[in-house]
Amino acid sequence: MGFKLLSKLLVYLTASIMAIASPLAFSVDSSGEYPTVSEIPVGEVRLYQIADGVWSHIATQSFDGAVYPSNGLIVRDGDELLLIDTAWGAKNTAALLAEIEKQIGLPVTRAVSTHFHDDRVGGVDVLRAAGVATYASPSTRRLAEVEGNEIPTHSLEGLSSSGDAVRFGPVELFYPGAAHSTDNLIVYVPSASVLYGGCAIYELSRTSAGNVADADLAEWPTSIERIQQHYPEAQFVIPGHGLPGGLDLLKHTTNVVKAHTNRSVVE
């Protein structure tokens, strides 16, 4: 069995187990497998329904001669939608809004960016022009300005110390501490036991640490421990890039980060 097929099978099995364990909360999309990078042309966006009122959005972007996937989250909030992270750029984010209108038909009224990198804030200006209120932590807003990236308009308070959590509509926002970046936030959907790890969490097929220019490698494993301790009931975990899975993604990420750190020390 090929690795790609095995990865998709694991996603399907995880979703099936969740649907059985929580039949009222989960209505997993039966329309197909989780979209992969090879299936999404740059400039297009796919939506994948995880649970009743919960979707991931998947886009792709060219970077350094390669094409990478990027995940975000959409959560229903009454007759409105909360968006977590842009679709990595203005063109993708405009396509995301169009796809949401086509498939869901509810307005996106608020959006949260989970850290300051372009795959999370690139497209904020498109959201703002569409009347979406954009939010991020003060740290993310400051770092985005320093980096020359787009800056969300509103500040999220109460997320300055490791372990801080605040309720934001249908989700809980959690600051686990520094990891992929010093400002990275985690998003949890309690009604569906869905954990969105953003770039602080890796997919299972990833074996290298990737972009760690703004990471705190020493603190990252401790931050992941905080996530595990705060959300032990999480059933569906979405990484910032690639295929979702279960809580095993947290341990896998820790292993990859520690291996990278150990290699760096040896070198």
Results as ranks from 00 to 15, higher is better:
Glu145Pro: 05
Pro190Met: 04
Thr182Gly: 10
Gly53Ala: 09
Pro221Asp: 14
Leu250Ala: 04
Gly177Glu: 01
Ile40Asn: 10
Asp119Pro: 00
Ile227Glu: 01
Phe26His: 04
Tyr188Arg: 01
Ala90Asp: 15
Arg141Cys: 13
Leu249Phe: 02
Asp119Thr: 00
Gly2Gln: 08
Gly32Thr: 12
Lys8Phe: 15
Arg110Lys: 15
Ala51Asp: 06
Thr254Gly: 09
Pro35Ala: 08
Leu173Gly: 01
Ile186His: 03
Ala179Arg: 02
Leu106Ser: 09
Glu145Ala: 11
Lys8Leu: 09
Val11Arg: 07
Ile17Asp: 04
Val132Phe: 02
Leu81Ala: 13
Ser191Ile: 08
Leu82Phe: 10
Ser208Val: 11
Asn149Ser: 12
Leu73Lys: 00
His230Phe: 15
Ser191Glu: 13
Glu225Lys: 08
Tyr196Asp: 01
His117Ile: 00
His154Gly: 10
Val237Asp: 01
Gly169Met: 03
Gly158Phe: 15
Thr134Leu: 04
Ser30Tyr: 06
His115Pro: 00
Asp64Pro: 11
Gly89Phe: 03
Gly245Tyr: 04
Pro244Val: 13
Glu39Tyr: 14
Met1Val: 04
Arg46Val: 09
His57Lys: 01
Ala66Leu: 07
Ser223Asp: 02
Ile151Arg: 06
Glu33Thr: 09
Ile17Ala: 04
Thr254Lys: 06
Phe63Asn: 08
Val132Asn: 03
Ser191Lys: 08
Thr254Asp: 13
Glu33Pro: 04
His230Asn: 14
Ser161Tyr: 12
Lys102Phe: 03
Leu243Glu: 08
Ile186Thr: 07
Ser205Gly: 10
Pro244Phe: 14
Thr14Tyr: 06
Ala259Cys: 07
His115Phe: 00
Phe168Arg: 02
Leu24Met: 08
Arg263Ala: 10
Gln235Asp: 06
Tyr12Asn: 14
Arg46Lys: 05
Ala133Tyr: 15
Leu96Cys: 04
Leu159Met: 12
Pro41Glu: 12
Leu250Gly: 01
Ser22Gln: 05
Ile50Cys: 01
Ile50Gly: 01
Gly245Arg: 10
Gly131Ser: 12
Glu157Gly: 14
Leu217Pro: 08
Val42Ala: 10
Gln49Lys: 06
Val54Met: 12
Gly78Ile: 10
Ser31Asp: 04
Ser155Gln: 13
Tyr175His: 05
Val146Leu: 09
Leu143Ile: 11
Phe26Thr: 07
Arg76Tyr: 08
Thr253Cys: 00
His241Trp: 00
Ala215Phe: 08
Asn149Gly: 09
Pro138Met: 15
Val212Phe: 15
Val67Asp: 08
Ala90Trp: 13
Leu10Trp: 08
Gln103Phe: 10
Gln235Asn: 05
Ser31Asn: 05
Val171Cys: 02
Asp52His: 06
Thr134Arg: 02
Asp119Met: 00
Ala209Asp: 09
Leu9Asn: 05
Gly177Trp: 02
Phe3Val: 09
Leu10Val: 09
Gln49Pro: 11
Lys251Val: 13
Gly72Tyr: 02
His57Asp: 14
Pro35Phe: 12
Ala133Met: 15
Leu47Val: 07
Ser193His: 15
Val212Gly: 09
Pro239Leu: 02
Val42Asp: 14
Leu97Gln: 04
Thr86Gly: 03
Gln235Ile: 15
Gly198Phe: 01
Ala66Phe: 09
Ile84His: 00
Arg128Trp: 11
Ser139Gln: 13
Thr60Cys: 10
Ser162Pro: 12
Tyr34Asn: 04
Thr86Ala: 15
His230Thr: 09
Ile50Arg: 03
Val121Gln: 00
Ala21Gln: 10
Ile238Ala: 02
Ser113Ile: 11
Pro232Val: 14
Ala19Glu: 05
Arg206Pro: 10
Ile201Met: 12
Gly32Trp: 15
Thr134Glu: 03
Arg167Cys: 04
Glu39Lys: 11
Ala21Ile: 05
Phe168Pro: 03
Ser30Leu: 11
Ser137Met: 10
Thr36Asn: 08
Leu185Ala: 02
Pro176Phe: 01
Thr254Leu: 08
Val37Pro: 07
Gly78His: 08
Arg226Trp: 06
Phe174Asp: 02
Glu219Trp: 13
Ala130Tyr: 09
Gly163Arg: 13
Arg120Lys: 04
Thr114Ala: 01
Glu157Asp: 13
His180Lys: 00
His180Asp: 01
Asn262Met: 13
Val187Arg: 01
Ala215Lys: 13
Ala90Ser: 13
Gly72Ser: 04
Val171Phe: 14
Gly89Asn: 09
Lys258Arg: 09
Ser113Phe: 12
Val124Cys: 07
Thr253Asp: 00
His154Pro: 03
Val45Gln: 04
Asn255Lys: 08
Gly131Pro: 03
Ile238Gln: 06
Val237Cys: 06
Ser137Ala: 10
Ala192Arg: 07
Glu33Met: 07
Gln61Arg: 06
Asn262Cys: 14
Ile151Gln: 05
Ser139Ile: 10
Leu73His: 02
Gly198Ala: 06
Ser27Glu: 06
Ser181Glu: 01
Val28Glu: 07
Ala144Pro: 03
Pro170Trp: 03
Glu172Pro: 02
Arg167Lys: 07
Gly122Pro: 03
Ala25Pro: 13
Ile74Pro: 01
Ala178Gln: 14
Met1Cys: 02
Ala215Tyr: 14
Ser27Thr: 08
Leu13Thr: 07
Pro152Asn: 04
